[in-house]
Simulated scan of single mutants.
Amino acid sequence: MGHGLAAQRETLESMRSGLRPNDFSRAPLACWIGRVDGLEQAALPAEYAPWECRNNRLAWLGLNQDGFLARVQQARQRHGANRIGLFVGTSTSSIGATEEAYRRLDADGNFPADMQRPAIHAPHSLAAFVAAALGLEGPCLTVSTACSSSAKVFASAQRMIALGLIDAAVVGGVDTLCDSVLFGFNALELVSTQPCRPFDLTRDGISIGEAAGFALLQRVEAAPQAPRLLGYGEASDAHHMSTPHPQGLGAGLALHAALARAGLDAAQVDYINLHGTASQKNDEVEAALVSRTFPATTRASSTKGFTGHTLGASGILEATVALQAIEHGLVPGNLGGDTPDPACGPSFAWRNEQQPVRVALSNSFGFGGNNACLAFAAAGFAA
C-alpha cells in the first residue's frame, strides 16, 4: 500500500490491491503476498547495527512515517523518557534472521560471525530496538499472541495509563515475511494460490503480508482534538490451536467487552474493520457474529484483500484503517468479495462508501482463540 497514511488512504480509495505473486520465498510456493517495497534497500543507522534484520528495518521505516519520531520526541520532552511506555506486537519478530543464520552454519555447526548477534535472535528484538530508537525508558512489553498481538498492545497501554504507571505510550506492531510463516501456513492448508477473497463464497485461503505501524497514546487532555480509544475487549477461548470456535465464543466475548467498556450500544457503531482472513472458518464465524449483533446501518468490511494477512502487525494496521474511516468518512469496500457469501448480512460494504463515521471497531482474532476488539471514536464523541 506504500509508506504512510496518505498512501494507505489512496490505495483504499482506488480499491487497488497491494498483493503480488510470491517473489519472496527461497523455494517455490504458488501464492500471493503483500510485500513492502524498498525494504531490501533500507538500512538501519550505524548506531543500531546490532539490531540489523528485515523486521527491524521495516520497524524503522514505520517509525519514520508521518512525522511520528517528532511526535514521540515532543511527548518525551513533556512527560520524560521513563514515563512513556512501549508496547509492541509481533508474531515472529526477527525469526527471518535466525532462519538465515541456520542456513549458513559453519563446519562446527555455529552461526556465522556476522549473525552472532543475540539481540536479533529473540522474541523481544523488536521492542528492544524500538526502545533504543525512540530513547524510551518506561515499561517495555512485547505481546506475541498471534494475529491479535498488535491489537492487544492498545489494551495493555490503556491499563497502564489508567493506573498512573505511565503518562503516555507508544504502541505498534511489525511482522515481516519469512519462510517459516509462508511454508508454515501452507502446511496448514490455509494459503490460497490466488489473491485472498475475504467473505467471498469461493474463498479458499489467506494471502500473507507484512506491515509496520505505530501510534502514540496519551490522555485526552494532552490531545483533545485527536481521535479516542474508547475501549477494548480481550478473550481467549482456547478452542483449538488454529480453528476458531464454531459459535465465535471468544470473538463474541471480546467484541461485547469492547462495547461495554466503551459504553456503546451496537447501533452506535458506524464501521467495523473485520478480521476477515478469507479462510473458510474464520469468515463464516465472523460473518455470523456481525449479523446477530449489529443493525444494517453498521457497515463492515475486511481490508485484507488490500494487504494480505500481516499476522502480528494486523491489529495496528487495521486500527489505522478504522481511524482513517473516522477522519475521512471512508468505509473501505471488501476487496475480493466479488461473490458475497450468503452468510454475510446487510451490514457488509462490498464497495467503498462515503459517510460520516463517528465510531469504528477493529477486530483481531488470533490462533488459539486469542481475540481482541478495539473501539475508536472521533474527538469529542460522547457515548
Rank of each mutant, 00 (worst) to 15 (best):
V290K: 09
G250A: 13
G312N: 08
Q65E: 15
A27Y: 09
T145R: 10
G4E: 09
N352F: 01
V191D: 01
I316T: 10
Y232F: 15
M241C: 14
M115T: 09
A169L: 10
G231I: 07
S302Y: 03
T293D: 08
A278D: 00
E286Q: 10
A7R: 06
M241G: 15
V174W: 03
G305M: 09
D204E: 00
T339C: 08
E13F: 01
S149K: 09
A146Y: 09
V171R: 10
A113K: 13
V181N: 04
H3T: 14
L311F: 13
G18N: 09
A59P: 03
I272D: 11
T90Y: 05
E221C: 02
A155G: 12
A235D: 12
L39S: 02
V36P: 09
E318S: 04
S236Q: 15
I166H: 07
A127H: 08
A157K: 06
A349K: 03
F365E: 06
L39P: 06
A155K: 08
V220Q: 15
S242V: 13
A59R: 05
G368D: 06
P346L: 00
P356N: 02
L259S: 13
I120E: 00
A122W: 08
A378T: 02
V321S: 05
P246W: 13
Q247H: 15
D106I: 02
S93I: 12
L217V: 10
N55C: 14
A6V: 13
L188T: 11
M241W: 12
W60L: 11
S94P: 07
T243W: 02
D270G: 06
A238H: 05
A211N: 00
D37Q: 08
M15V: 06
A260T: 14
P332Q: 07
N371I: 01
L136M: 08
A59H: 00
T11R: 07
G18F: 01
Q218I: 04
D338R: 09
L374I: 04
S207L: 02
F111K: 00
D200Y: 00
V171C: 05
T307V: 00
A157T: 10
P244R: 08
F185V: 06
H240F: 10
F376A: 06
L317T: 12
F183M: 12
A6P: 03
A360W: 08
N110E: 15
T193P: 10
A75I: 03
R83M: 09
S125Q: 01
S242D: 04
G34I: 11
M160C: 02
P123F: 09
V72T: 06
D338T: 12
L190S: 15
D106K: 02
P224E: 05
V290G: 03
A226S: 03
L249F: 14
A107L: 05
L274C: 14
T310G: 02
N334Y: 11
A49L: 13
F185G: 09
E13N: 11
L182K: 11
R351I: 11
S148I: 04
G233K: 08
P356C: 11
V153W: 09
A6S: 14
F111Q: 00
H121C: 12
A287G: 14
E286I: 08
V36M: 01
S14V: 02
L188Y: 01
R83E: 14
E13L: 15
G252E: 15
G96M: 01
S207G: 06
P45Y: 05
G209K: 04
A42T: 07
